[in-house]
Write a protein that binds this DNA or RNA. Structure first.
Lengths: 108, 108
DNA sequence: TCTAATTATTGCAATATTGCAATATCACAA
DNA sequence: TTGTGATATTGCAATATTGCAATAATTAGA
């Protein structure tokens, strides 16, 4: 049904999956990398960085914003998007908590 | 068109997004956590762990296997799935490389 | 005011994802 | 050989995602 079940999982699992899902598109990975790199950016710069149209970029930005990875403030008639540092560390904790687990020895 | 463009991104960005996407579902997060926890598992155990039917679980396992996170060996008429330790560390490196970047000071 | 620049939203069309029921496969045991 | 248990595959149906063109909304400047 294209609809992900949510009952039967912990809140942490759902949050983790939600974050991972948002990072699950090369355009959004590229946006995050770019923002981390230059540490601030007006949305229009992204037109030169991504192989996508302006509306599509706007959509990806909206999704990153929805989970709090980025935040934007209005700067005249343009936008200033940047990483939300607090949220970013939170996400690092969440994903790091999973990734940090050591798998046992080769078992099969 | 529901189809993600791949030209215009680096191979690393695409790989990173692919991994993140696979982890972008609570069932798959739960499977990975479970496998890391018990360090081996026959697929049928998952019926008790996940709120999903057997065919659906099988599909999620196939997706985890496709990107190499898990591997399975045949054990009689059942399967032994476990984390691929080498691949897991590789993934930790990839995602860690992104997550580890420090965002600058609050800028907007 | 009129226009240009910038970003967001809407409206499609195409493809992908998720889920279950039904069925197929395969190994093992009786 | 027949049946049982375990897993995979197929075949839907419903929803989600991705992308662009067109358009709206907003601000700044002439």
């Amino acid at each position: 049904m294209g609809l992900t079940k949510t009952e039967g999982y912990t809140q942490a699992q759902i949050e983790l999956a939600t974050i991972a899902k948002v990072l699950g598109h090369p355009a959004r990975v590229a946006i995050v990398q770019h923002l981390l790199e230059i540490n601030a950016c007006i949305g229009n710069d992204l037109m030169d960085v991504l192989p996508l149209s302006q509306p599509t970029i706007s959509r990806h930005l909206a999704e990153l914003k929805k989970v709090g990875i980025i935040q934007g403030t209005i700067e005249g008639s343009s936008m200033n998007y940047c990483i939300n540092p607090h949220r970013w560390r939170e996400i690092r904790q969440m994903l790091g908590g999973l990734l940090g687990k050591e798998p046992g020895e080769q078992c099969c």
